[in-house]
Design a protein around this nucleic acid. Structure first.
Lengths: 341, 341
DNA sequence: CTGAAAGCGCTTACAG
DNA sequence: CTGAAAGCGCTTACAG
């Protein structure tokens, strides 16, 4: 917070050496260049005394690296992504990286624009939650030498490092649980955005149903990212007022679960007496609900942690050929909302 | 996404002019330097054709400005701050600024460290949610020429631009409402961190009570930022099991309201039959609650928007003498949790 | 073990 | 209206 910035030149003059030496010491390359211990000590002390702060712009210009990573999620204000963001931030700071966030709103054009802004800012790598329609942009980006890690969703036809949930297992667990509890007519509410995560969740559900000789019903047709509450109300009405009403519903995401429970309450359908429910992710919302919710728990914080680990390895090793992927395990948390029939 | 980066030199060579001209045109200073229209057009076209992207590190090194702002909140994963962060991001991007976020966890040492990291990264300005114990660090920062805006909380003894809620009015509204509904023994649950926002909320409550000749009871003594659930349970027990149990509770923050309602449910105290409640901020949690909640609504998104407006004005005008402050108005949303006694 | 020097890409005062 | 040149602060190959 001094008026004029202290540079390595100031330190060099104060100690009476060249700026090269100061630079070596400041970058801990003293041993490599065999700077004497005495000199190393003096330079370090002077730097501290003068409160030297390296100029990142200069360092970045010269080295071509910024120690900044870009993170693009769907919406940073969504609790799932907010939790991940927090963990990304924590882990990145530990490695001395700073993070720039952006929200795509599930809009491919916005996503592309954010990528451009961030690449332009000189980020050393990107963590991206791909959205519907972003496949081509991501493909191009992956061809670049810029390290990239996909989060929460993959693009199956592209080989890119990613951190995702074992989504099939998640809904398989939920489905098996409901069957075990005595339910047979189990239906699922999902998105129609054709994202890898919800698609896999649908597969986990339907293949489990099939194995048990049960018929699956997936309600996705009308659910767009916008107007979720209205759309969900319609779907819930359909499910519960049909001639063969569902005995249980699995919601494929947290937002769907919350809106779904609201819709059920609106129509005075009581959980679990009238219908059983399995949700996705814990949420404060469930804690004030009249009954405890059964839900699939994702290790949310691990998403953020692992994504940073993968990305920084990619940045520091510059070993582009190595694609690493991490699949995290879901867990079923049993509550009263799926109590035995 | 090309292999070698295009620089103004490439454009200059392609067009056959000096780099100065290219720079003038790229910075829209063509008129000022009276560059011919023809030349301006040719340079712009070539830049577009070559997909020129200015190097921010170089620009930043040369100009001393980074078009980056730093934002330090308590915890980016807390919905209140996540919503604000989202709005800050949106508004900053509109001005072509990028944002670096950090979470202090209400820890003054962490806050100081984050400030140093960000100043060091060369941010052009900072938006900070000050925490308990950070007064001195903020004071020093304010003496710097770096533009600064405080968010959500102020430091009354320091003259610094800020965006806050009219906190007194918020709880005055809540208190008046409860009195109007027939409640007399109204108590408040707050933090003991001595932050300007909760302090003001306490004042708004107690002065309203006093005006009506009622006695106020503020429960803050044991509530630390850590272990909130346990602490709140104790407080709720005290309030409800005393010889003069409260008829109504006002929770001073969103987190307190959520944890408070959970504690009430745990002890089988029904809202509003056994006790009336007024909360703070809307939340998904309340939407699945058995009754609709009465709460103070803050214009959350406006916090983010206004903070960026103030900060960018500070950055672009470099008019350090001008301290601008914005106080936002709360609104009382009436629900069933404070129904007439 | 240490120094002199080039150069990263840009902006801008100066000269014409 | 346009060009040549300095310099922002740093890193690093080169020379000794």
């Amino acid at each position: 917070m001094q008026s004029r910035r202290i540079t390595i030149k100031d330190i060099a003059e104060a100690v009476g050496v060249s700026t090269s030496l100061v630079s070596f010491v400041m970058n801990n390359k003293g041993k490599h260049y065999r700077v004497s211990e005495e000199m190393t000590r003096r330079i370090q002390e002077t730097a501290r005394a003068l409160n030297y702060q390296p100029n990142n712009a200069a360092r970045s210009l010269r080295s071509g690296r910024s120690r900044t990573i870009g993170v693009i999620v769907s919406d940073i204000s969504n609790p799932f992504f907010a939790d991940i963001a927090r963990r990304i931030e924590d882990n990145a700071y530990k490695y001395n990286y700073t993070v720039i966030f952006g929200s795509s709103d599930e809009n491919a054009a916005k996503l592309e624009n954010l990528i451009n802004v961030m690449v332009n800012k000189g980020v050393d790598g990107l963590i991206i939650v791909p959205c519907h329609g972003s496949e081509e942009v991501i493909r191009q980006l992956a061809e670049t030498s810029l390290p990239l890690v996909l989060l929460d969703r993959t693009i199956p036809e592209l080989e890119i490092s990613h951190v995702v949930l074992n989504n099939r297992k998640a809904t398989a667990l939920a489905t098996e649980h409901l069957i075990e509890q005595g339910y047979r007519r189990i239906e699922m509410v999902s998105y129609d955005m054709r994202l890898s995560n919800t698609l896999e969740r649908e597969t986990g559900y339907s293949s489990t149903m099939e194995q048990q000789g049960l018929k699956s019903f997936i309600h996705t047709h009308r659910i767009k990212f916008q107007h979720i509450p209205e759309q969900i109300q319609k779907v819930v009405q359909e499910i519960t007022q049909s001639s063969h009403p569902a005995e249980a519903i699995i919601f494929a995401t947290n937002t769907l679960a919350i809106e779904g429970l609201k819709a059920l309450a609106k129509f005075n359908i009581t959980v679990p007496d009238n219908i059983a429910v399995v949700g996705f992710d814990g949420s404060e919302a469930f804690e004030l609900y009249h009954t405890t919710l059964t839900y699939i728990k994702q290790p949310i914080e691990q998403f953020g942690y692992e994504a940073v680990e993968l990305l920084i390895k990619g940045i520091e090793n510059q070993d582009k050929s190595r694609i690493a992927s991490i699949t995290l395990s879901p867990e079923l948390i049993r509550g009263n909302s799926s109590r035995k029939k």
